[in-house]
Design a protein around this nucleic acid. Sequence first.
DNA 1: TGAATCAGCACCAGTTTAGTGCTATTTCGT
DNA 2: ACGAAATAGCACTAAACTGGTGCTGATTCA
Lengths: 158, 158
Amino acid sequence: MLKLTKRTEYGLIALVHLADQAAAAPEGTLAEVVSARAIGDQFPIPRRLLAESLKALQAGGLVDSTRGSQGGYRLARAAESISLGEIVTVLEGAPSLTSCAGLGAASAGGGCDVEPVCPIRSPLARLRSGIWALLEGVSLQALADRSVNPVALFSAAS
Amino acid sequence: MLKLTKRTEYGLIALVHLADQAAAAPEGTLAEVVSARAIGDQFPIPRRLLAESLKALQAGGLVDSTRGSQGGYRLARAAESISLGEIVTVLEGAPSLTSCAGLGAASAGGGCDVEPVCPIRSPLARLRSGIWALLEGVSLQALADRSVNPVALFSAAS
DNA sequence: TGAATCAGCACCAGTTTAGTGCTATTTCGT
DNA sequence: ACGAAATAGCACTAAACTGGTGCTGATTCA
Ligand code: SF4
Ligand code: SF4
């Protein structure tokens, strides 16, 4: 299934929101932290699950969290320096495309038995790196920037 | 989960094998049909499941099947004209990336409630079309061609 | 103190995946 | 005609994953 999980989508929504906040902050100052509740109020999504995404995001080091009353989340780094690839990796693991991790570490445990003779492994690895490049090429900044929303690429009119 | 299903992988393996057969056939002649059993004997995969993939492939019109003794499968079209995108679509449905189909048909049933206000829908649709372009750009021919296996792109030298 | 908020864990129901079973139908070879 | 080989079609199971929820702690501000 070439599909993102809801957890990832919710995480992305949250990150975009946080990026907005960061953009709104005066230059040189840190953005206000935003609580999971606050974000959840903006979108019709189960806020609890959104909170789970935020937790994962913080575990992955993409956002900083402040606990306690008036606490919340804030981007850990500049939106430009956070790639979609990194986000997806944190939220649902690196896109593997196949069961065989492929790179580096040789015959680890989890693989499939076809590996030694698999005719599609190598080409698929290449493809995966292509997808990976795509993901790496999109920054959170680009995601959040609403002015640049050129649906042009597939302009399915109407 | 950005991962292909086993069914798809098995189908790909089978297709590559069939493409090999087609390539081996004398110019202008049709390749011999290959039975699911024959393919399964070449790779350590559950042959039964492989057969399921083949069935799906035939249902999708990518391979022609001949029944009865000495029956088997054969590519329905030239390997160059079968794109990976088409294969994936047949084997596990078009890669949607998100739950919202996105293109064309407006508020259909299955979507999610965030759609009207979703900040990531549009950019993700763009991304998906990028991935789609990647898949469309790889032909079965390219998959099967073992001489062109430039792992160069990610050459993780080990 | 107490409310707000993040953190951690554990749980559940529904769907998907991987894989198998069985039967019918078609075709070839004898 | 017969039987073996092969695809077609359907139905089924067990495990994994997904979406979503509950609850209990820990932390911080008012
Ligand atoms: S070795 Fe081949 S079949 Fe096994 S996971 Fe990798 S690509 Fe798929
Ligand atoms: S509308 Fe937004 S949240 Fe809903 S499926 Fe599409 S991208 Fe995901």
